[in-house]
């Protein structure tokens, strides 16, 4: 049984088939990339996995359990965290609070318990501090110390991307979905991002599925790649196999060039 597996997944909007009978498998502790031209259905796959969309057919198996029909928060508690293509941060909150929110599922204090938060001995305060330490570790890891108490809407774009990554990491997921983690970053920030994603897999042991347009990064980072177009798979394999595949080149660069 694969760690994560998608079987015969289809999702359409009106007449448009965004994902069309898609299959793929991801092994544990793999970095798996999904590539394809704009509108190929990449983000739709993430939205199906994460429970925002209900696919018409197919199965999404995570550690053997079908995720179809579960709510996004249930999928998060099953151990899947994600980031978003266009950043979905809690804009009017600080970096610290954003990442603390990633700990939401592991914190258990009830409404009655949190009323005692201002007493150091209270259960709620102890829990809060314990998770605060965890969050500080993530802030350390992503080097976000200077941004800790700033509102995220005031941070530069690159830092915002890191906060979102940090929030996802705070869930301590088994599987991390990264939707274009390097889009909009500078060359330097992108290199750092590659470094962090590798660390996330190597040090934290988290399986990563990522969507990315930057081929250099994809080649550099991925164990395996899935290329799709019009919601259908073109090919799956190692970076060399996929990026050299004539259909992939055609999908990205257009018909004429391959004929030349």
């Amino acid at each position: 049984m694969a760690f994560f597996q998608i079987d015969n997944l289809s999702k359409s909007f009106g007449g448009l088939k965004a994902v069309d009978q898609l299959d793929f498998q991801v092994q544990e502790k793999e970095i798996f990339s999904i590539i394809g031209p704009n509108g190929a259905g990449k983000s739709t796959i993430f939205n199906c996995i994460n429970g925002l969309y209900k696919p018409e057919q197919g199965k999404i198996l995570f550690k053997g359990n079908n995720l179809i029909g579960r709510r996004p928060d249930q999928i998060a508690s099953a151990g899947i965290a994600r980031t978003f293509q266009n950043l979905e941060l809690f804009a009017h909150m600080t970096t610290l609070d954003n990442i603390m929110l990633g700990r939401h599922l592991s914190m258990k204090a009830s409404i009655a318990a949190v009323l005692g938060l201002s007493f150091k001995r209270s259960k709620a305060a102890k829990e809060e501090l314990q998770h605060r330490r965890k969050v500080e570790e993530i802030i350390d890891f992503l080097e976000l110390e200077s941004a800790r108490d700033q509102f995220v809407s005031n941070l530069p774009y690159g830092k915002q991307k890191l906060v979102e990554l940090g929030r996802a990491l705070a869930l301590e997921p088994d599987l991390l979905l990264l939707d274009e983690p390097a889009a909009g970053l500078t060359q330097e920030e992108r290199e750092d991002m590659v470094f962090w994603i590798k660390d996330i897999r190597d040090l934290l042991g988290i399986t990563v599925i990522l969507i990315e347009h930057n081929m250099q990064m994809v080649q550099n980072i991925s164990d395996r790649i899935l290329a799709i177009n019009f919601g259908k798979p073109i090919t799956t394999g190692t970076p060399e196999e996929v990026l050299g595949h004539p259909e992939v080149i055609r999908a990205y660069l257009g018909e004429d060039i391959t004929q030349v």
């Binding site: 994460n50 429970g51 925002l52 709510r71 996004p72 928060d73 998060a76 508690s77 965290a81 994600r82 978003f84 979905e88 941060l89 809690f90 804009a91 009017h92 909150m93 609070d97 603390m100 929110l101 990633g102 939401h104 599922l105 929030r167 996802a168 869930l171």
Partner: peptide, 18 residues
Amino acid sequence: RAFQAIRDSDIAASAIGI
């Protein structure tokens, strides 16, 4: 914090388990 998360982005809030 969960309340404010819903206010700022309900989609992200549900994705982190709220």
